[in-house]
Simulated assay, not measured.
Amino acid sequence: MKMAASVRALAERIGHEFQDPSILLQALTHGSRGGGGDNQRLEFLGDRVLGLVIAEALLDADPTADEGHIAPRFNTLVRRETCAEVAREIDLGAGLKLGRSEMIGGGRKKEALLADAMEAVIAAVYLDAGLEPARAMVLRLWGERVASAPKDARDAKSALQEWAQGRGLLPPDYVLISRDGPDHAPRFVIEARLSTGEVERAEGTTKRAAEHAAASALLGRLDG
């Protein structure tokens, strides 16, 4: 089956040569396109494949960790924001097959569409070649995220809010300072602020990631 240049380029970026290119095309097809054959079922399967691969990777990386410490790291790695972040890094949006309304509405940049399509692409590789190629692709694309996922059972934003509440303070504010970079690889700078005046700034490839980084930096300063 003949593939558009953008889809061929995406296959090269994810590092898999499809025996059945129609599976990849389905993984990239949003329901707004109409006519059936969208990526919803593949997204469902890909979510499970991703979860299995990440769970195994975390267990292998830290053989002594208990479930209470692995679970929050797992959740960080498989959540929608992370999937969308990976999708942006490989410019998955360029290959999406969207209906007119989604194209006009900026669907190629939407976090939910990118995250769902990323999971569908994982399923496409799994169905095309099996678990090992799918595992290899996930570990390659998720890269250092597995090693650097936070080990604290609480995420930084929750911990900072608990710190503030425990001292009778208002919840922290998160202020967007700037957004730079191309659409497929943006960089957000966020400032975490407490009502008592403490401030820390951090950046990330998503607003959520930048908020967590800023919260973590502010926590480190408060605990220091």
Rank of each mutant, 00 (worst) to 15 (best):
E111M: 06
G95Y: 02
S148K: 08
L96P: 00
L113N: 10
H69K: 13
S101D: 09
G181C: 07
I14M: 14
A9F: 09
R100D: 06
A71P: 00
P186G: 05
D20I: 13
S158I: 01
I14H: 07
Y126P: 01
A159G: 01
K109S: 10
G224L: 13
E162W: 04
L24N: 04
D20Q: 13
L24E: 11
V125D: 03
L139Y: 10
A147K: 14
R208K: 15
D62H: 00
L42Y: 14
D223G: 04
A217V: 01
P186T: 08
V138Q: 04
G224W: 07
L98K: 02
R80W: 03
S158N: 12
A147Q: 13
Q19W: 08
R13Q: 14
L96A: 07
R79V: 04
L42N: 04
S158G: 15
V49Q: 05
G68E: 05
A124T: 13
G31V: 09
H69S: 08
E85W: 04
K157F: 03
L141G: 09
R145I: 05
Q165L: 15
K110N: 11
E43F: 11
R140Q: 14
L219I: 07
T29H: 09
G15E: 15
H16Y: 14
P21F: 13
T76E: 12
L25G: 11
D183P: 04
S32E: 05
L218P: 01
I122Y: 01
M1T: 13
R154L: 15
G93L: 12
D183M: 07
D152L: 09
P171V: 14
E111P: 02
P186C: 06
F188D: 00
W163T: 11
P133D: 05
L96S: 07
L170I: 06
A84T: 03
R135Y: 03
A156M: 09
L98V: 02
E56L: 08
L127W: 07
A202F: 03
I177W: 10
A123M: 07
G106V: 04
R187W: 05
K110H: 06
P72L: 02
A5C: 06
A27D: 06
I177Y: 04
V125T: 10
I90Q: 10
V189R: 12
G51A: 05
S101A: 10
M3Y: 03
Q40W: 04
L222H: 02
D183Q: 14
K151S: 02
E102Y: 09
A57C: 04
N39S: 11
R187V: 14
W163K: 10
V175P: 03
S195G: 07
H16E: 12
H212T: 10
A84C: 02
G35P: 09
R13A: 15
G143F: 08
R135K: 15
A117D: 00
E203Q: 10
L59Y: 01
A209L: 14
D38L: 01
L24V: 08
A57Q: 00
I90W: 12
A156D: 08
L25T: 09
T205S: 12
A124G: 14
P133T: 08
A164P: 05
D155H: 07
E81P: 00
D152N: 12
R73N: 00
A9Q: 15
